[in-house]
Nucleic acid binder design. Structure first.
Lengths: 176, 176
DNA sequence: TTATACGTTTAAAACTTTTTAAACGACAGG
DNA sequence: CCTGTCGTTTAAAAAGTTTTAAACGTATAA
């Protein structure tokens, strides 16, 4: 392979590794993605480990999560018992997977604690409805409203398919 | 203070601590925010440390970043040399701060590496324009397009102010 | 001047996450 | 049956991060 291309591949792999760590995954996740994304042929687990110069165990751990989140796809070839992986190139699908599999749960979990707290305040008897309690209620309701709006926007975002996204940007969402 | 309220405060502090760690900050950041958010009065650095039962140094480190990202505001009272902090309660401001101060840079950094790689491919001489090179070009351009769309959507999002957000959701963005 | 109350810095300790190497079980081909 | 090749699991090592305690500098007040 052309030397220059090899350098490019390496740059992208490292760049995505860095980004991946920033985005809350680990570095290897991004590197695996980068490697597969710039490979016309799918790669087997062992090949990934070899090319990235990390242990098979590490790759094994990472591909499992990546598959669950829809970052890559696993498949088999007949007469070959290795597991092959290829990158999901539909980025909207990828984002959708992460938002619904990972982020959604965590946000809901947090908002549930707000809801619970508000319910607890509501159940206080009249004597306990102090200024402090009212203040808490206001603040938590404000937080809940925000959470609801975010949830609603996420739903809207997730409902967009690729075609709609591109038409949306062509319409100039910036001037809504 | 009412015992029940104390428990609520603690729950919210822990909940936001957890969320904060998930969102790429550290746990203390979320806890500080939660404490200040449920405090009518601003608190001094030492008081925060005491109430959260962590060292002053830890709080000092965290409030600096939080202030930069617009999560909290610092101010002084005359005749009192302590630094007081209060939570920024405008969540859109907070999100805007984080997206522009933290996330924007990291995304741009990543996309720059894609742009650089594409430029490098463009500069290859005719002999080096192999199938492989063409494949790289396609994939990287695809990635760049996606990045551009995300950047555009972010800009649109950041341009929304609170009023516009609420009217947007009332209009039912979900059916765009 | 000395003592005290601040916030910051620092180097080390504690903790968490990531990574590895090696052991393992399954399975295919001889 | 062996033997070698897979992917997974595991326990330990390595690396990274968070947290602390203590030292420090500055300012204020006695």
């Amino acid at each position: 392979m052309e030397d220059e291309l090899l350098k490019i591949k390496e740059d992208i792999i490292q760049g995505l590794g860095r980004f991946s760590a920033f985005a809350g995954f680990n570095k290897i996740t991004g590197q695996i993605y980068g490697l597969l994304y710039l490979n016309r042929e799918p790669l087997a687990l062992g090949q990934i480990a070899e090319q990235l110069d990390v242990s098979k165990g590490n790759v094994s751990l990472n591909v499992r999560i990546m598959e669950r989140w829809g970052l890559i796809r696993r498949f088999n070839k007949r007469g070959d018992r290795r597991d092959y992986y290829e990158a999901e190139t539909d980025f909207w699908k990828v984002i959708r997977g992460i938002l619904t599999e990972r982020d959604k749960k965590e946000v809901e979990y947090t908002m549930d604690s707000v809801t619970d707290s508000l319910a607890a305040i509501g159940k206080l008897d009249a004597a306990a409805q102090t200024d402090e309690a009212v203040f808490y209620k206001e603040r938590l309701e404000h937080m809940q409203e925000f959470g609801d709006t975010i949830a609603e926007m996420s739903r809207a975002f997730l409902a967009l398919d690729n075609f709609r996204v591109s038409s949306l940007s062509r319409l100039g969402l910036g001037r809504v």
